[in-house]
Simulated scan of single mutants.
Amino acid sequence: MSDHVKLGYIGLGNQGAPMAKRLVSWPGGLIVFDVRAEAMAPLVELGATAADDVAGVAAADVISVTVLNDEQVREVIGRLAEHAKPGTVIAIHSTIEPDTAPELADQLRPKGIHIVDAPVSGGAGAADKGELAVMVGADDEAYAAVKPVFKQWASLVVRAGGPGAGTRMKLARNMLTFIGFAAACEAQVLAEAAGIDLQKLGQVVRHSDAQSGGPGAIMYRDDTKPLPPDHFLHDPFVHTRGLGEKDLNLALSLGKRTGVELPLAEVALKNLAAGLGVPHTEE
């Protein structure tokens, strides 16, 4: 894709604003729109062009959309579709329903408009530094168009598949995050009941996760089938299974002694071995 295509950005909130900021120096220029004029002003000062409405952004070749929900996404893309030219690529960065992007892609394909779902992970801080991860669902032509644009604000650009795949990947990723948060809350309840300083526990967790990589440290498999004995992960995961089951049993025992229910720990103990791909087998 030529550097001289024009970019557009709609939705300049906490996530969209720092992403758009990293695009203002794009050679082909940047058109922005937000319902709040004050959200556009800092980008205009840096060289972006403010549009009067959503339709004004349709002059761009690659348009990013970061709005709140499915309803807003459909409304914005509907307005863009009325004015966009064939070949336009519209990238949705909002976390939406998994069927929304494929439906919109099918609707707009006859017009020659490409829909890309490209939710991001990392937050506004990572956007400021250009270190977001973006999970892209796109056809070949659209992916080639958006990849160099996304690299302005993302240090990891992953193509998940066709339209809709980016959203499905983001939902799995966020599920892990929030299950992890729930598990952290459960761990704090146990620690508090056992007389542990929660601030100090938090320091240890953040430090050790930074060293070990947290849950991502086990996510190197191509599928979730049981691992054959000669797989390079089999023996390390058997070791991990042993450590995990020992420590989970110890935590559950402490929970009983302190009168704390630990439902997530019970589920983890039940599912860890099979989840790792090294289920216990009767010999």
Results as ranks from 00 to 15, higher is better:
residue 114 H to P: 01
residue 67 V to P: 06
residue 48 A to L: 13
residue 96 I to A: 00
residue 102 P to T: 02
residue 263 P to K: 06
residue 62 V to S: 01
residue 141 E to D: 13
residue 192 E to R: 14
residue 68 L to I: 11
residue 213 G to P: 10
residue 232 F to I: 09
residue 54 V to Y: 05
residue 217 A to S: 15
residue 206 R to F: 11
residue 88 T to M: 05
residue 51 A to P: 10
residue 228 P to S: 03
residue 80 L to R: 07
residue 130 G to D: 08
residue 230 D to H: 13
residue 259 G to T: 07
residue 14 N to K: 14
residue 41 A to Y: 00
residue 280 H to L: 10
residue 24 V to N: 02
residue 43 L to A: 03
residue 255 G to E: 04
residue 115 I to D: 00
residue 228 P to F: 06
residue 207 H to Q: 14
residue 155 S to E: 04
residue 92 I to Y: 03
residue 18 P to K: 05
residue 186 E to W: 12
residue 139 D to R: 04
residue 243 L to H: 10
residue 82 E to I: 07
residue 205 V to I: 15
residue 122 G to C: 05
residue 227 L to N: 01
residue 115 I to G: 04
residue 134 V to W: 06
residue 185 C to K: 13
residue 86 P to V: 01
residue 29 G to V: 09
residue 266 E to S: 12
residue 232 F to N: 04
residue 98 P to Q: 03
residue 81 A to K: 09
residue 143 Y to D: 01
residue 207 H to C: 08
residue 134 V to D: 03
residue 214 G to D: 02
residue 109 R to F: 11
residue 12 L to F: 12
residue 40 M to V: 03
residue 214 G to Y: 06
residue 202 G to R: 05
residue 1 M to F: 12
residue 232 F to S: 05
residue 145 A to L: 10
residue 141 E to R: 14
residue 145 A to E: 11
residue 86 P to Y: 08
residue 140 D to K: 12
residue 94 S to T: 15
residue 161 G to W: 13
residue 1 M to W: 06
residue 257 R to S: 14
residue 12 L to Y: 08
residue 160 A to E: 11
residue 56 G to S: 04
residue 273 A to T: 01
residue 44 V to T: 14
residue 141 E to T: 14
residue 169 M to L: 13
residue 155 S to R: 14
residue 211 Q to L: 14
residue 113 I to T: 00
residue 233 L to V: 00
residue 126 A to M: 10
residue 264 L to F: 11
residue 43 L to S: 01
residue 249 N to Q: 11
residue 211 Q to H: 08
residue 93 H to N: 13
residue 103 E to C: 01
residue 160 A to V: 14
residue 230 D to V: 03
residue 31 I to K: 09
residue 205 V to K: 01
residue 260 V to H: 03
residue 253 S to A: 14
residue 70 D to A: 05
residue 41 A to Q: 15
residue 185 C to A: 11
residue 163 P to T: 00
residue 56 G to L: 07
residue 94 S to W: 09
residue 281 T to W: 10
residue 6 K to R: 15
residue 179 I to R: 08
residue 126 A to P: 03
residue 196 I to Q: 06
residue 132 L to K: 07
residue 168 R to P: 03
residue 6 K to H: 14
residue 264 L to E: 00
residue 232 F to R: 12
residue 47 G to T: 13
residue 165 A to Y: 09
residue 14 N to G: 07
residue 256 K to A: 11
residue 11 G to M: 07
residue 129 K to G: 00
residue 47 G to N: 10
residue 106 D to H: 09
residue 84 A to C: 15
residue 282 E to F: 02
residue 211 Q to P: 00
residue 67 V to E: 02
residue 128 D to N: 15
residue 102 P to I: 06
residue 157 V to K: 04
residue 140 D to W: 13
residue 135 M to D: 00
residue 195 G to A: 01
residue 166 G to W: 12
residue 74 R to L: 09
residue 25 S to I: 01
residue 12 L to K: 05
residue 126 A to G: 05
residue 106 D to F: 04
residue 100 T to P: 02
residue 228 P to Q: 01
residue 137 G to E: 04
residue 274 A to T: 15
residue 228 P to Y: 04
residue 248 L to Q: 00
residue 65 V to W: 01
residue 22 R to Q: 13
residue 88 T to Q: 04
residue 129 K to C: 07
residue 241 R to I: 02
residue 14 N to H: 10
residue 193 A to G: 10
residue 142 A to N: 02
residue 139 D to T: 07
residue 213 G to W: 10
